[in-house]
Each structure stands twice: as structure tokens, then as C-alpha cells.
Design a protein around this nucleic acid. Structure first.
Length: 459
RNA sequence: GGCCUGGUGGCGGAGUGGUGACGCAGCGGAUUGCAAAUCCGUGUACACCAGUUCGAUUCUGGUCCAGGCCUCCA
């Protein structure tokens, strides 16, 4: 089947047909770099990484342009830098670097392009100028505001109308707004905070304009996929649509809107007040990034995902199982012409990763049973290619089982003890052989005997 | 108040108008010196109440419950 995606704009699954049959453009809202990434930030990264892998397989690496921005100018950044007593640049550089490291640990490939908001200020000023000229924006008390009444379709993406928004407003409305739903395009900066010169005075951009400008600069007025967390539907994406369509023309901008659901931690929403913010860094100390990734993929991306340490453990177990099969296939070379059709089919159905994982488990099970070498080679090819689509199973199994940081025992010591144990077993000295096995087990090393000999792994 | 998701076996989690994925855990068996790993077998699950239907977990309406957005947020 062809790729189908649930399009937030139409509220249904649609067949994905790119604008240009040969090339695909995808824009995903990236982080505002003011703090280290938490596990919730990782969800869209991993989901859209899987989608990018799928698109690259189908259209070719050179024909997919995956853009994910870095928002490095924003009031939270200013506040955090001040609180930390560090410069804004130091904060954004440090945070961006940590973000890249954390996402790489979770197996996310870098996007093709990663524009930074601060590199696109000129474009933002230009776009705001166009909106002013076309009568979609106005200046008030040093701010430039988008006039939502100038756009008939405003609210369409998120499915809400202006009256509802006004009725539901829980914040005080700035007195200079013509309409309560108007939002800021440009705001004035005091001398001690970052600002750029503009026709409306020294200032900085509002929250939404950067994505309208960067997506256009990288992908053009109209492009295929726009992604992000579902909390961004309103107001962020709604306002992006308003800015872009009003500046560039009706019917432009993103064609497919893809939004991932939220995740909770041990049943609760992550929040600073509950103290349950889990950073990717902390979680990496608990389990390998690949296990965190599998855990993330174990629920469908549009469903809520409850992140629990039990779930992480189970994901680690499942990954062990897959790597065990892969290890057992070390007697054959992978047949690289094989495509894991079952995995592909699942992913083409709106990125159904739980189904894709089930397909991987089926391959694993088949591998454990198959004795024919040609078939084993095919299965290995499928396991690896299916794993690659999901960003899993790309390590050497030996590395997976034995490569974790050395504990109290080194690999050499373990090998020596295995030799001693083999000898003890040969002499039917089972007391000694069990003693060795038990003692290693206490140190987190599990021995497995097979007709081919004894292997070990760290657990 | 408005808008929007969900409620599936012990747990996680797909899916479907008709023969109940998949994984973890459990139980039984095979294998093993004993294990581990693996294999085989094993589960009368779809919040509740109506309705439509030959038949609903799947469609419709209502109820209850949980959560999200409307304000910074992935």
C-alpha cells in the first residue's frame, strides 16, 4: 500500500501524494533552546525520524528535504540566560549541543537542514512588511500585530472560531489589540535584551513568525508535510498558517499536518511543579538510548504514551530478544536485497510503529526457527532493513550485549572464567561450574551454553 | 464555558461489523548435568446503557470515568 498519513487539517487519514512526485519537503518544529531536552521533546524527534527514514527509502535520500528548526530567540531564553547568569549565546549554544547529543543517543538521524531563527531575522522583517502592506497586520504601541479579522479562514486548522476563543480567554487581553485573538508578529526590545532594527523600531520577533519564514526559505511557499506536537496546533500552527497564507497567497503552506500526541510520566503530566520532568539525559543513565527509542515507538504516535520505568525495562527486554535473534544469525550474511514488507506496510499505514514492531518480533521468531541457510540470510536481511526503518538493530549484537560500560569484571576476566568453567564441566565438576556462573550472574553477567559454546552478556 | 482525545486480558498495546494481533509477565511441556536462551502449548479482554444489524469490541445516541487544548509547552 502507499503511504497514508492522518492529516490534522482534514481530520482523516489520507494517501500521501507529494506536490512534486519526485521530491518531498517536510518541516518539523524543533526545540526552543533554553533547557535540556525532556523525554516529551524526544517524541516528535523520534516519530518524524521514522517518517523521514520511510520517505528516504521511498523517494531516495537525495529527494527528501527534512527541515527541523532551532528557535534561538525567544523570551524564555532571555529569562533562562538571566537566571543562569550566562550569556544568551552561551545558553543557546550549550543547549543546542546537548540536544544534538541526546537525540543522537536515541538513534535520531540529523535533519537535512537545521535553520536557526536568529539567521532569519531579515526574512521575518520582510514577511511582516508584506503582511502590513496587504492589510493583515497593524502597528500598535511599538508592536506589530496580526489582524485575525483580515483572514476569513482563521481558526480552520485547529477547528475553533474567534467567538469561542474570546469566550475561553483566560488571560488578560493586551489593550492595544484590535481583536482579542490578534497575535504578535514583532515586539519592541529594551536596550538590555536582544533586538534587531526594523521599520517598527528595535525589537524581536513574536513566537510564530520564525517557522513561517524558515519553512518558506528552506522549502518554498508550499510544501508537503508539517509536523510537531499536537499542543502546537493552536496557537502556533494556526498562526503560522495565517501568516504564511496571508503573505504568500491563499492555499499555500503545508499540505499535510502531522501531530504527535503527548506523553505522561508514570500516569501524570510532566510538570515542574510535580517534579516529574524526566530529561533524556537522566533516562539514558537508566537504559540505552535504543531501548528508550523502542519504548517511544511502542505506542502509536497519535495516542497518548505513558512513560514508565517498567515500560522502559520491557522495551529493553524486547530489544534483547531481537538482538538475540540477530546474534543467532551470525552464521549467515544478510541478504541485502530483502525488504521487510511487513514492517514497511505497517509504517505506511500512518506510521503504525506498534504494528511494525510486531512485524519485527515475527521476523525474530522466524529467525529462531529457520534452519535453511538461504532463508536465514533472507530473514537477516529483513530484520536489518526493518530495523533500519525504525532506527533499531543497527548495532552489532555483540556490542549490544557486551559493549555496555565495564562493570567490575572485564571481558578478558569473563573469557578466562568461561574457559575454566568449560574445563570444570568437562570434568563433570558441576559444583565449580555453577559457582562460576552464579558468581558472574551476581555481577550482572549471564552465561548461555549452546552446542556452539558458551556466550555471555551483560544485563 | 468552548473545542478535542481516550477507556481493549495481570501489564503494555494494535486492530476489526462476523473464526479475539503482538510483546511482557504467569502456567504446562520440550531442550539442558542444572540453568539461560530458544521452541511448542496455554488466556471465554474490548467502561456502562440503549439503538441499527442476521450479527457490534468495531456504527449511532446517551451515561460515567480519565486526559489534553483554549496561556509558555513536544
Amino acid at each position: 500500500m502507499a503511504l497514508h498519513l492522518y492529516n490534522t487539517a482534514s481530520r482523516q487519514k489520507e494517501e500521501f501524494v507529494p506536490r512534486d512526485p519526485a521530491n518531498v519537503g517536510m518541516y518539523v518544529c524543533g526545540p526552543t533552546v533554553y533547557d535540556t531536552a525532556h523525554i516529551g521533546n524526544a517524541r516528535p524527534v523520534i516519530i518524524f525520524d521514522v517518517l523521514a527514514r520511510l520517505l528516504r527509502l521511498q523517494y531516495g535520500d537525495a529527494h527528501v528535504n527534512y527541515v527541523r528548526n532551532i528557535t534561538d530567540v525567544e523570551d524564555k531564553i532571555i529569562a533562562a540566560a538571566e537566571a543562569n547568569g550566562e550569556s544568551i549565546e552561551a545558553l543557546t549554544t550549550r543547549t543546542t549541543k546537548a540536544y544534538h547529543e541526546d537525540m543522537a543517543e536515541m538513534g535520531a538521524l540529523p535533519p537535512n537542514r537545521e535553520p536557526k531563527a536568529t539567521e532569519h531575522i531579515v526574512g521575518m522583517v520582510e514577511m511582516i512588511g508584506v503582511l502590513m502592506e496587504k492589510g493583515h497586520a497593524y502597528e500598535a504601541e511599538g508592536h506589530v500585530l496580526f489582524d485575525v479579522t483580515s483572514m476569513a479562514d482563521y481558526g480552520k486548522l485547529s477547528g475553533r472560531n474567534r467567538d469561542d476563543m474570546i469566550a475561553g480567554a483566560r488571560v488578560e487581553i493586551a489593550p492595544y489589540k484590535k481583536d482579542p485573538a490578534d497575535f504578535v508578529l514583532w515586539k519592541p526590545s529594551a536596550d538590555d535584551i536582544p533586538g534587531w532594527d526594523s521599520p517598527w523600531g528595535r525589537g524581536r520577533p513574536g513566537w510564530h513568525i520564525e517557522c513561517s519564514v524558515m519553512s518558506r526559505a528552506e522549502l518554498g511557499d508550499t510544501f508537503d508535510i508539517h509536523g510537531g506536537g499536537r499542543d502546537l496546533i493552536f496557537p502556533h500552527h494556526e498562526n503560522e498558517v495565517a501568516q504564511s497564507c496571508c503573505a504568500n497567497g491563499d492555499g499555500t503552506f503545508a499540505r499535510y499536518w502531522v501531530h504527535n500526541g503527548f506523553l505522561t510520566v508514570e500516569g501524570d503530566k510532566m510538570s515542574k511543579s510535580l517534579g516529574n520532568f524526566r530529561t533524556v539525559r537522566e533516562l539514558l543513565a537508566e537504559a540505552p538510548g535504543e531501548a528508550l527509542r523502542l519504548n517511544m515507538l511502542s505506542a502509536h504516535y497519535r495516542q497518548p504514551l505513558d512513560w514508565t520505568s517498567d515500560g522502559v525495562k520491557q522495551s529493553k527486554t524486547n530489544l534483547d530478544k531481537l538482538y538475540t535473534s540477530l546474534q543467532s544469525l551470525s552464521d549467515v550474511e544478510a541478504d541485502e536485497s530483502q525488504v521487510a514488507k511487513s514492517v514497511l506496510d505497517a509504517l505506511e499505514d500512518d506510521i503504525n510503529t506498534p504494528k511494525a514492531l510486531a512485524a519485527l518480533y515475527a521476523l525474530s521468531s522466524a529467525a529462531n526457527k529457520e534452519t535453511n541457510l538461504v532463508e536465514r540470510s533472507k530473514i537477516k536481511g529483513k530484520l536489518l532493513s526493518g530495523g533500519n526503518l525504525l532506527g533499531l538493530l543497527q548495532q552489532d549484537p555483540k556490542e549490544w550485549f557486551q559493549g555496555a560500560e565495564e562493570g567490575d569484571v572485564t571481558a578478558d576476566q569473563i573469557e578466562a572464567l568461561i574457559l575454566e568453567r568449560v574445563e570444570a564441566k568437562t570434568n563433570k565438576n558441576y559444583a565449580r561450574s555453577d559457582e562460576i556462573r552464579d558468581s558472574l550472574k551476581d555481577q550482572g553477567i549471564v552465561l548461555e551454553d549452546s552446542p556452539q559454546g558458551t556466550t555471555w552478556k551483560r544485563v
